[in-house]
């Protein structure tokens, strides 16, 4: 029981983290029609910034806030310097150009911070276990991630659906020439959206940093998961990304936790222990394959064009 609740919450936490990453990816794709592989690099930069600023200021929260600002600025600079010129180009061009950016970011990090990973220590008040149900404790920090991510998801939803900026963003997604003709500064809007996506990726990175080590290439594996989520959820759809991210987080976490035991009941011990790790890492890709067979456009395709 304890294990089930704990793994369930772990899955939820991982899923929400994935959502922060996938939301930025799907926003940028849905609105600017830009495939950004370097999104994972922004996630990595968020983590590195947080580790650095937290060490400078001596405060975890202050470090996290500064890191959030820094990734926002980095995203805006990146958009203005490079990615802006890729709008309207072939998707293949996006893939290659942002692939180049990944190489650049990984190497720049190695140059600045060195090849060894960094650690981002948590303040004492976030390390205490919190009782969530009678007799069941859960780490405060993981709970904090869940709360923050849910809050951000809510803000994002309200921001996109209920505010003027959000309205402009949605309008820009459906017809960029028209809203440009109506006198909206579409360039600025795109830059802001990219900055927002970068900040979301940075937030995911800095929140994940205390759980894993901060290291080069940390954004790449998780980026692929974010792709899977975007594909399952339907490109450009925030709602789809949210539901797909929670499902993928759950399936991945619960699969890794319980699949070995399940397999052991069916197969012999040796066969189960060889098959389990491979199978549990395949699980979400199998889910993706099934979704593709049933709904090639994803579960919640955004109604565009």
């Amino acid at each position: 029981m304890l294990l089930v609740v704990e793994q369930f919450l772990n899955g939820l936490q991982f899923g929400l983290l994935l959502f922060l990453l996938a939301a930025g990816l799907t926003l940028v794709f849905g609105i600017m029609d830009l495939v950004n592989l370097a999104h994972g690099s922004l996630y990595m930069m968020g983590a590195y910034f947080a580790a650095t600023f937290a060490a400078w200021t001596g405060s975890f929260l202050l470090g996290a806030l500064l890191a959030l600002g820094a990734t926002l600025v980095l995203g805006i600079v990146l958009e203005m310097a490079a990615l802006r010129h890729l709008y309207g180009r072939d998707h293949l061009d996006h893939v290659l150009a942002t692939f180049g950016l990944i190489l650049f970011f990984n190497e720049a990090v190695r140059l600045i911070w060195g090849p060894a990973g960094l650690a981002l220590p948590l303040p004492a008040w976030l390390t205490v276990p919190v009782p969530i149900l009678p007799g069941i404790h859960y780490p405060a920090y993981r709970l904090a991630i869940i709360v923050v991510a849910l809050l951000v998801a809510l803000l994002l939803y309200l921001g996109v659906m209920r505010t003027r900026i959000g309205m402009l963003i949605r309008a820009g997604a459906s017809n960029r020439e028209m809203i440009g003709a109506l006198g909206i500064n579409i360039k600025l809007l795109y830059t802001l959206v990219f900055g927002l996506g970068a900040a979301l990726a940075g937030l995911a990175g800095l929140m994940q940093a205390p759980i894993l080590t901060v290291q080069i290439g940390m954004g790449e594996n998780i980026l692929i998961l974010a792709f899977v989520i975007v594909v399952i959820g339907g490109i450009g759809s925030i709602r789809g990304a949210f539901l797909a991210a929670i499902s993928v987080g759950m399936i991945d976490t619960l699969g890794r936790a319980f699949l070995p035991n399940l397999l052991r009941q069916v197969l012999s011990g040796a066969a189960a222990s060889t098959a389990a790790p491979a199978l549990s890492s395949m699980l979400i890709y199998l889910v993706m394959a099934i979704v593709l067979v049933v709904r090639p456009e994803g579960l919640f395709p955004a109604n565009r064009r």
Partner: peptide
């Protein structure tokens, strides 16, 4: 740090 040059080079080739 060869990738520091290779990365932007790719970007330029694409552009």
């Amino acid at each position: 740090y060869w990738a520091l040059i290779m990365g932007p080079l790719l970007l330029l080739i694409v552009l």
